[in-house]
Design a protein around this nucleic acid. Structure first.
Lengths: 149, 149
DNA sequence: ATCGCTAGCGTTATGTCATAACATATCAGT
DNA sequence: ACTGATATGTTATGACATAACGCTAGCGAT
């Protein structure tokens, strides 16, 4: 129970297991959110065979702040800015319904207001989901259709 | 089968079809978010048989601002304050992982900040999801476990 | 009145996302 | 070597959501 050595005050990208590393790499290489099954398909040749292998890796990555789940998409992205949002509060995501691009950002004022509401109402805030849906600047120029739901 | 009911609609909300009315009533009577399949189960004796009947009704209700989808729960609630949030600005939800209770609220400052980010980045904002997860005041007093995911 | 349009409805089948349950493996600390 | 914690692999199943089809009702314009 006692911390024998290795005081991880700054939690660096800790040692990842093989599966965790594979999943994180896949997310890093993707330019769009991936579903767990998308990830699985890309890792078949690396030996992964079942959804659970991906979901378990994702759980750990998310726990460590290395990846995020997009609730409105049931998909996953790697964190754009490791270590940053974890310290400061939760991240927000702008998801383009044209190209699937996701921009991650954090707004201290927003986080403060939501934390304020929670405090006022005795609500023990554990995590926050903020997702904006719309069309990015690029996609507004080109009047292309909307491939994403 | 011709008209067996009045043509008059005493409802304050818009004209709802039979299925839409059934689904909305079910949400109104529930004290917690319901999944589409929960709703379906409660409406079997009213003749509903397939998920699509529920999903179609939900789509319309959400479109009209009479119900909301909770993305982090894959479940639905009726709008707490008809006509208000519809006007503009999106609603936020505080979801208790202890009892399932959901509080709906709107924070103008939060909405303004998010709209601001969108404007700065040329992002055409269509809709916003804001969901807080945690434990409500009630559930913090009683140290009960966490039945909800 | 009938045509054509739009919206809703009912049904079957299927697709997509996520976890339960169980067995095996790996490794650090005692 | 034993133990406990963590990760892994596999099968099966559960939970959420939509595609595709055809039918019906209401409605307005010719």
């Amino acid at each position: 129970m006692a911390h024998t050595h290795d005081d991880h005050h700054h939690e660096r990208p800790r040692d990842l297991t093989r599966n965790q590393d594979l999943v994180l790499s896949t997310l890093n290489e993707a330019h769009e959110p991936l579903s767990a099954y998308d990830i699985l398909d890309r890792l078949r040749e690396d030996g992964l065979r079942a959804p659970l292998q991906v979901y378990r890796a994702l759980d750990k990555l998310i726990e460590q702040g290395l990846a995020h789940r997009l609730e409105s998409l049931n998909a996953f992205v790697c964190c754009a800015d490791v270590g940053c949002h974890r310290a400061r509060g939760s991240a927000a995501f702008a998801i383009c319904s044209g190209c699937g691009r996701v921009d991650e950002f954090a707004d201290d004022e927003v986080n403060a207001r939501l934390a304020g509401w929670a405090a006022e109402h005795g609500f023990a805030l554990e995590r926050t989901t903020i997702e904006l849906r719309g069309r990015c600047a690029e996609c507004r120029k080109s009047q292309s259709g909307s491939p994403l739901r």
